[in-house]
């Protein structure tokens, strides 16, 4: 098996395990964090803190390399502009996140746990991504 495929798979497993251990895969807990005015569960702030503490070190190293350890090109994002899709998209994502307590990663893990509601959410999310592709394809066609 190709090394990059194997590492992709293993990273998916580690990521999924992190979501399960941290409580992120449980929408009720996510909503407990987003509910500042109710009984507030601050746990998820620590999830992000723990992740970013490790990430800061890794991305500092990554930024100095031109090739990855497996010899792949480093595909680090280069954009720095703030545009309307970024702002409106992120605001819209937060609304969807707050409605059900699911963001994309936890939905996939809950789906793997056999939660039918996670299956429904994931199918709707994929449909949403398909709608994005259709809108953008149409927009590019009419622009050219």
């Amino acid at each position: 098996m190709n090394k990059t495929l194997l590492s992709s798979f293993l990273v998916g497993v580690i990521f999924g395990a992190g979501l399960l251990i941290s409580g992120m895969a449980n929408p009720a807990k996510v909503l407990g964090f987003l509910d500042l005015a109710g009984l507030w569960d601050p746990s998820l702030a620590l999830v992000m803190g723990g992740a970013v503490a490790v990430g800061l070190v890794a991305f500092t190293f990554a930024g100095k390399r031109t090739l990855s350890l497996l010899g792949e090109p480093m595909r680090l994002p280069t954009r720095r502009d703030i545009d309307k899709p970024l702002v409106l998209g992120s605001l819209g994502f937060g609304v969807g996140w707050g409605l059900a307590g699911f963001c994309p990663g936890p939905a996939l893990v809950a789906l793997g746990a056999g939660e039918i509601k996670a299956v429904v959410f994931t199918v709707a999310m994929l449909a949403g991504m398909g709608i994005y592709e259709l809108i953008e394809r149409q927009r590019k066609k009419s622009a050219s």
Partner: peptide
């Protein structure tokens, strides 16, 4: 649990950028 799970998520992101770029 949340700190440890978060660190694991960070580790996954770290491995992915360092191995796969």
């Amino acid at each position: 649990a949340s700190l440890a799970g978060g660190a694991l998520i960070g580790l996954a992101a770290a491995i992915f950028i360092l191995l796969n770029g």
